[in-house]
Deep mutational scan, measured.
Amino acid sequence: SEEWVEIALRLLELGREANINGTILNLHKEEIEELIRRLLKRI
């Protein structure tokens, strides 16, 4: 399964939302940290 691709796409999506909203992603901080942890486990 290409889970890391899904994770990377989700991170990009959150990054785009952050640019549009001008936020520092506090809302998504925990989700982002969890996604990155899952991503690093696969490398």
Rank of each mutant, 00 (worst) to 15 (best):
E2V: 08
E31R: 02
I7Y: 04
L11Q: 00
L12A: 03
L39M: 05
A8V: 14
K29G: 10
K41Q: 08
L12V: 05
E6K: 11
I24T: 05
N26V: 09
R42T: 10
H28W: 15
A18K: 04
E17P: 06
G22I: 14
L12H: 02
V5K: 05
L27K: 13
G15L: 15
K29A: 14
G15P: 02
T23R: 05
R37L: 07
N19D: 09
N26E: 13
L39S: 00
I7W: 11
R42M: 11
R42F: 14
E34W: 10
G15A: 15
E13P: 02
K41Y: 10
A8L: 14
L40D: 00
E30K: 13
S1F: 13
V5T: 04
N21Q: 05
V5L: 11
N19H: 13
L9I: 06
I24E: 07
A8N: 01
E13A: 10
E2Y: 12
R37K: 05
G22C: 10
E17K: 07
R16Q: 04
R37Q: 04
E17V: 10
R37C: 14
I7D: 02
S1N: 06
I36S: 00
E6V: 13
R38D: 02
K29I: 14
N26Y: 12
S1D: 09
I20K: 11
N26P: 08
R16V: 09
A18P: 04
L35T: 01
I43K: 03
E33S: 09
R37V: 04
E34P: 01
L12S: 02
I7N: 01
L9M: 08
R37E: 02
R10I: 12
E33K: 09
N21A: 11
T23K: 08
R10G: 04
T23E: 12
N26I: 13
R16F: 14
I36R: 00
L9A: 04
R38S: 04
A18Q: 05
H28F: 14
L40Q: 01
L9S: 03
E31K: 04
W4R: 01
V5Q: 06
N21Y: 04
S1I: 13
T23A: 09
E31A: 11
N26R: 03
R42A: 13
R38A: 09
E13V: 08
H28R: 05
L40I: 06
I32C: 15
K29Y: 14
R42S: 11
L27H: 12
I36K: 00
L27M: 13
E3Y: 10
A8T: 07
K29L: 15
L39R: 00
I20L: 12
T23L: 13
L11I: 06
R16T: 04
H28K: 06
L14G: 01
R37G: 02
E2F: 14
I36T: 01
G22M: 11
A8I: 15
N19W: 15
L11E: 00
L35R: 03
R42H: 11
R16K: 06
L12F: 05
A8F: 14
I24P: 07
N21M: 12
L27V: 07
G15Q: 05
L9Y: 08
N21L: 15
W4I: 08
E2P: 09
L39I: 11
L35D: 00
E6I: 13
K29C: 15
K29D: 06
E30A: 08
L27A: 10
L40S: 02
R37M: 06
G22T: 12
H28A: 09
A8D: 01
E13D: 06
E33F: 12
E2T: 08
L39N: 00
E34A: 08
I20W: 11
K41H: 11
H28Q: 09
K29S: 13
N19Q: 12
E6H: 12
I43R: 03
W4P: 01
I24K: 04
I43H: 03
K29V: 15
T23G: 11
R42K: 11
I36G: 01
E3P: 07
A8M: 13
E31L: 13
N21F: 14
E33R: 13
A8P: 00
L40T: 01
I43P: 03
N26S: 07
E33L: 14
W4C: 14
L39F: 08
L11T: 00
E2N: 14
I32K: 00
E30N: 06
N26M: 09
L25H: 04
R37N: 02
R38M: 10
R10A: 07
I36F: 09
E3K: 08
W4Y: 04
E34H: 08
K29W: 15
R37S: 03
N19G: 08
G22V: 12
E30W: 06
L39Y: 05
I7G: 02
L11G: 00
R16I: 11
L11W: 05
L39V: 08
L14S: 01
E31Q: 08
I7Q: 02
V5F: 11
L25I: 10
E33G: 04
N19Y: 14
R10M: 11
E30G: 08
E17Y: 08
E17S: 07
I24S: 10
L9T: 03
N26C: 15
N26Q: 12
S1Y: 13
V5H: 06
H28S: 14
E30D: 13
T23H: 13
E34R: 10
R42P: 03
L12I: 12
I20F: 11
L35Q: 01
R10E: 03
K29Q: 11
L14N: 01
E31Y: 10
I20T: 09
R10N: 02
L25S: 12
I32F: 08
I36A: 02
E31C: 15
E3G: 12
E34V: 08
G22L: 14
R38Q: 08
K41D: 09
R16S: 08
I43Q: 03
R10P: 01
L40E: 01
I32Q: 00
V5G: 03
I36H: 00
N21S: 06
G22Y: 06
L35M: 07
N26G: 07
R16L: 12
W4G: 01
R38K: 05
R10D: 02
E3H: 13
L9P: 00
E13I: 12
R37I: 07
E33A: 11
N21D: 10
I32Y: 03
G22E: 13
I20Y: 06
E6R: 13
A8E: 02
L27E: 06
R16E: 03
G15M: 15
I7P: 00
K29R: 10
L40A: 03
L9G: 03
N21P: 07
G15C: 15
L11M: 04
N26H: 11
E3L: 11
K41G: 05
L25V: 07
I36N: 00
E13F: 13
E13S: 06
H28D: 07
L27Q: 10
I20N: 06
I36E: 00
E6Q: 11
E33M: 14
K41V: 09
K41L: 11
N21E: 06
L9K: 04
T23N: 11
R38P: 00
R16H: 07
L40P: 00
L39E: 00
I32S: 00
L25P: 09
R42Q: 05
E3I: 12
L9W: 12
N19S: 14
I20P: 05
G15D: 03
I24R: 05
G22A: 12
L12W: 10
E30I: 07
I20G: 06
W4F: 08
E31I: 11
I7H: 01
S1T: 10
L9E: 03
I7K: 03
R10V: 11
E3R: 13
T23D: 10
E2L: 14
G22K: 11
L12E: 02
E34S: 06
E13H: 05
I20Q: 05
N19R: 12
A18R: 04
E30M: 07
I43M: 05
G15Y: 14
L9F: 08
A18F: 11
L11K: 00
L25G: 08
K41E: 06
N19F: 15
E31T: 02
V5C: 15
E3Q: 09
E2R: 11
E31V: 10
G15R: 04
A8Q: 02
R16M: 06
L40K: 02
K29T: 10
I32A: 02
N19T: 13
E3M: 09
S1G: 10
A18S: 07
L40M: 09
V5Y: 10
I24M: 05
E2A: 13
I24F: 08
E2G: 12
I20M: 05
R16C: 15
I32E: 00
S1W: 15
E6A: 10
G15F: 15
R38I: 05
L12T: 03
K29P: 13
R37W: 11
R38H: 04
I24G: 07
E2K: 13
I7A: 05
E13M: 09
I43T: 02
R10T: 02
L27S: 13
A8R: 04
R38Y: 12
R37F: 08
I32R: 01
L11N: 00
W4M: 07
E31G: 03
E13W: 13
G15I: 15
G22F: 07
G22W: 09
V5I: 07
I32T: 01
L25T: 13
V5A: 06
